[in-house]
Design a protein around this nucleic acid. Structure first.
Length: 118
DNA sequence: TTGCTGACTTGGC
DNA sequence: AGCCAAGCCAGCA
């Protein structure tokens, strides 16, 4: 069985530019609903070999940056803005920029978008 | 090896 | 709106 870590990285790599997703979504797609913390643990341990992983596109369910103890969340905000993601008041509007695997087909503006935003 | 921390989420109050 | 408790399990001492 593939490592949880590998699956997380694959999911994150699948997030298109200009979109963001949440730890919970990544965890669910990776096969462990509710294991959002582990997603954070994986991303925290990223190395040079994982430079192709757009970790900045992974945020918390509230649409905010969850750097907590990892230093500059400002960097992440800057990276997101550079991709066209609007960040106002340290918050991202998940209704517009939130991504989930299903959005590959439908884009947004559907029940999936509402689901992503809960 | 064990044990604790923690880029989180969710449901209940 | 917010706070609290439980659960997930990868990484690190």
């Amino acid at each position: 069985m593939e490592d949880f870590r590998s699956r997380v990285l694959r999911v994150v790599r699948a997030v298109p530019p200009g979109r963001v997703t949440t730890y919970g979504t990544v965890a669910a797609v990776a096969g462990s609903p509710g294991a959002a913390r582990q997603v954070g643990a994986v991303l925290r341990g990223l190395t040079d070999a994982d430079a192709d992983v757009p970790w900045q596109r992974v945020i918390n369910a509230a649409g905010g940056i969850s750097t907590y103890k990892v230093g500059s969340g400002e960097l992440q905000v800057a990276l997101l803005r550079a991709e066209g993601v609007e960040v106002e008041n340290d918050r991202v509007n998940l209704r517009r920029f939130g991504w989930s695997p299903d959005d590959e087909q439908i884009g947004f503006d559907s029940h999936a978008a509402a689901n992503a935003a809960r």
